[in-house]
Computed example of a mutant assay.
Amino acid sequence: MDIKTFEDLIEWARQLHGHLSRCLSESSTENQGERARALLAYLADHESELERITAEFEKQAETKALKTRLYDYLNSEHHPIKTHRTCDGHYDDLDFDGIVREIFDFHDQLIDLYDSLAGKAEIPEAKELVESLRAMEEHEAMRLARQIGMMDDV
């Protein structure tokens, strides 16, 4: 996806969460580990919810912020988010800890991207929007960590 505006960024992030949800869901029936299957199913639901929440940002953000161009994103040294863009069964063979590492790495990359863009935002409305996205990702990552910690205790 060609990301030119903050609106594009939100759509791209929404699609990432949705895609990850579908991949995790598919793997939740294929993974041989009982704990891993339960984790994958939980994470699929969580990512689906993040897809919905991210879409709300697009509905509620100010048009001025949404239409702001992301010149620095296109010209920066920022590398695209590393995730499995095809549902190729990658999560089928990972154990519980491997899945956890990959999911938190994904969320950390999004948080870093939002943090970088907040520092480059040219108008206050765009800065506020991307800071809100970052805060949502951070909050959800913390919530996820608590939930996974409880699963790990079981």
Rank of each mutant, 00 (worst) to 15 (best):
H19M: 07
R22Q: 12
V130G: 01
S27R: 13
Q109K: 05
A141S: 14
N75A: 15
H84Y: 09
T5F: 12
E77A: 05
D153V: 14
A135N: 12
W12L: 01
A145T: 11
I103Y: 13
Q147H: 15
E131M: 05
Q60G: 10
E131Y: 03
R14T: 15
L40W: 07
A61I: 04
D97H: 14
C23I: 04
L133A: 00
M142Q: 00
Y91P: 04
E138Q: 13
E30M: 09
G89W: 06
G119R: 14
T29E: 06
L40Y: 06
K82G: 03
D88Y: 04
R85T: 00
E140C: 08
N31K: 07
E49F: 07
F96H: 11
E30G: 02
C87Q: 07
Q32V: 12
T63A: 08
R69A: 07
R35L: 00
Y42H: 15
A13R: 10
D2Q: 13
L117M: 11
L50Q: 13
K59F: 02
D95T: 01
H79G: 00
P124Q: 11
L39H: 07
E102T: 07
A44C: 06
D72A: 13
K59V: 08
G33E: 11
P124E: 12
S76C: 07
I10K: 01
D93Y: 15
E51D: 12
K59W: 03
F6P: 09
R14V: 09
Y73H: 09
L24W: 09
K120M: 05
Q109P: 02
A61N: 01
A44L: 08
Q15G: 00
G149D: 02
D152E: 05
D8E: 06
D72T: 13
S21F: 09
T54C: 00
P80N: 06
T29D: 03
